[in-house]
Computed example of a mutant assay.
Amino acid sequence: MRLIITFILLGFAIGSNSQIIQKPDSSTQIDSTIKTIHIFVALCDNKYQGIVPVPAKIGNGQDSNNNLYWSCGFGIKTYFKKSKEWKLIKVQKIDSTRLERLVFKHTTKNYYLIADAYNGRYIKECTIDFLRSSSGQLKDTIRINNKVIGISGNAELAAYIGHNGLMDFQLSEAFKNTDNKTRDVIILACISKNYYSAHLKSAKVNPIVWTTGFMCPEAYTIHDAITGYLNNESNEKIRTRAALAYSKYQKCSEKAARNLLVTGW
């Protein structure tokens, strides 16, 4: 049974005053031949997010091993591990906020995909990190096989997956572009275009796919969108891939999926 119901009701305000601030190592030189995609996943959380509760085992935002958006059949970790397009090369435990980091390498292209599973309690921090990365305020690097690759604001594409925390809390911070670089973004969360637009206008991003209504942010949608992205397809073609995947797995009409998943401003 589909869990789209989990996104329909707005919850009470949540969040934390603490924020994650990552400082890049300025002494490292990013390998310019390698491109990256960074996915920020706020784990589903019955206790700390304003959602209709899902079964306890998959709605524990402190357990990445069983979470709906991470380790279930259509979670980011499980779905991408099964993909013929990606190979998992590293799993890393980080801290109590970012419970797990995955690093995938594309099987034919010089692209890496980094996915971070944020403790569901810290959905606000996950949202802020995504917005800071989209504007270039937050930049970082990681080392893979003696090569330094860019993540956060150093990635070509930043994506957010999960509950729309902006329904539950407000952000006063301005996310103004810092380096005049236009970054590509995908936001798979309920009504994301409406809630994220104001925060991303000054970030000067290119919104490839975001949403106009309630949705289930399972991994097939972003997986197929990324396939088009790596093929240098237009925003509209990438959006079509995302809509077709959503239509297939959610068993809704293509028209409904296209109305939900949109591109551009």
Score class of each variant (00 low, 15 high):
residue 1 M to F: 12
residue 3 L to T: 05
residue 4 I to M: 03
residue 4 I to L: 07
residue 5 I to T: 07
residue 10 L to N: 15
residue 12 F to G: 04
residue 12 F to C: 03
residue 13 A to W: 05
residue 15 G to T: 07
residue 17 N to I: 09
residue 19 Q to H: 04
residue 20 I to G: 00
residue 29 Q to M: 07
residue 33 T to N: 15
residue 34 I to V: 15
residue 34 I to G: 02
residue 48 Y to D: 13
residue 48 Y to C: 08
residue 49 Q to R: 02
residue 51 I to A: 00
residue 61 G to T: 09
residue 63 D to A: 13
residue 66 N to T: 15
residue 66 N to C: 05
residue 69 Y to K: 05
residue 75 G to W: 01
residue 76 I to R: 06
residue 81 K to N: 15
residue 81 K to M: 13
residue 86 W to K: 02
residue 87 K to F: 07
residue 87 K to H: 10
residue 90 K to T: 08
residue 95 D to H: 13
residue 97 T to D: 07
residue 104 F to S: 00
residue 109 K to N: 05
residue 112 Y to W: 07
residue 115 A to T: 10
residue 117 A to I: 06
residue 118 Y to K: 02
residue 125 E to Y: 03
residue 129 D to V: 04
residue 144 I to A: 08
residue 159 A to Q: 05
residue 171 L to V: 12
residue 178 T to M: 06
residue 184 D to P: 02
residue 184 D to Y: 10
residue 193 K to V: 01
residue 198 A to Q: 14
residue 202 S to L: 13
residue 204 K to S: 11
residue 207 P to I: 02
residue 209 V to F: 11
residue 210 W to R: 01
residue 217 P to A: 04
residue 218 E to M: 11
residue 223 H to Q: 06
residue 224 D to V: 03
residue 225 A to E: 06
residue 230 L to V: 06
residue 234 S to I: 04
residue 236 E to H: 13
residue 237 K to G: 01
residue 239 R to P: 04
residue 240 T to D: 14
residue 249 Y to L: 10
residue 252 C to Y: 06
residue 258 R to W: 05
residue 263 T to G: 05
residue 264 G to T: 07
residue 265 W to E: 06
